[in-house]
Computed example of a mutant assay.
Amino acid sequence: MMNLEIRNISSIETYPVRHPVLRAGRPITDCYFEGDDLNTTIHLGIFVEERLHGVATFLMNKDLNIEELISLEHQQCYQLRGMAIKAEIQGQQLGSQLINHAEEMLKNKNVLALWFNARESAVSFYKKKGYQIVSEPFEIATVGIHYKMYKAL
């Protein structure tokens, strides 16, 4: 049985996971995301045996294209950014546990919706978690094909 803990971390603490998983081969400065240091932004880390193996960032952000689907105040909608689990520990349900924890945390803050731009390779994971695709595929330069996904909390 793994000793597992999910807790708040700083934006800089996300870099050792963001870099190899999401920005491999690129400068470490590419791990900084706009909005990382806002006081409404939440960074979560999932630790196994006290070692950080996964991260996710939640940014208060109402996307204009999502607005057509839902009518929410800005603070009721968050965007997931920079979700990453280290390659050597993927497939052990850490990502699922991290998302479950985050959804409960956001619900407790009266957040009503979570959306994000999912990499093509991650779409099936998010579909299993109840998220739906709400866009055509689109390319993010130097990162690849993405789909906008959404779930009411």
Rank of each mutant, 00 (worst) to 15 (best):
M1R: 03
M2T: 06
M2N: 04
L4F: 02
E5C: 12
I6Q: 01
R7N: 06
R7A: 13
N8Q: 11
I9K: 01
S10E: 03
S10D: 01
I12T: 10
V17N: 05
R18H: 10
R18E: 07
P20A: 10
V21Y: 03
R23E: 11
P27A: 14
D30T: 15
D30M: 12
C31L: 08
Y32Q: 09
F33M: 15
E34Q: 12
E34Y: 07
G35F: 02
D37R: 04
L38C: 10
N39F: 05
T40D: 09
H43L: 11
L44K: 04
L44Y: 05
L44G: 01
G45C: 12
G45T: 13
F47G: 01
V48L: 09
R51Y: 08
R51I: 15
V55P: 00
T57W: 02
L59C: 06
N61V: 10
N61L: 15
D63I: 11
D63N: 15
L64E: 13
I66L: 14
E67A: 13
E68M: 08
E68G: 08
I70H: 00
I70Y: 03
I70G: 02
S71M: 09
S71N: 14
H74D: 14
Q75G: 08
Q76H: 08
Q76R: 05
C77A: 14
Q79A: 11
R81F: 10
R81H: 06
G82Y: 00
M83A: 15
M83W: 02
A84T: 07
K86A: 14
E88S: 12
I89P: 00
I89S: 08
I89Q: 02
I89R: 02
G91K: 06
G91L: 11
G91H: 04
Q92S: 13
Q93A: 15
G95R: 04
G95E: 03
S96K: 11
Q97V: 12
H101I: 05
E103W: 03
E103D: 05
E104C: 14
E104S: 14
M105V: 09
M105G: 10
L106T: 02
L106H: 00
K107F: 05
K109N: 10
K109F: 03
N110P: 03
L112P: 00
L114F: 02
L114N: 01
L114W: 00
W115Y: 03
N117K: 08
N117A: 15
A118M: 07
A118K: 01
A118T: 03
S121Y: 07
Y126M: 06
K127T: 11
K128M: 09
G130V: 09
Y131V: 05
Q132D: 09
Q132P: 00
I133C: 08
S135H: 00
E136Y: 06
P137E: 10
P137Y: 04
P137Q: 07
P137C: 10
F138D: 04
E139A: 10
E139W: 01
A141H: 09
A141R: 04
A141E: 13
A141K: 11
A141Q: 08
T142S: 15
G144I: 11
I145Y: 02
M149I: 06
M149D: 03
K151D: 01
L153P: 01
L153M: 07
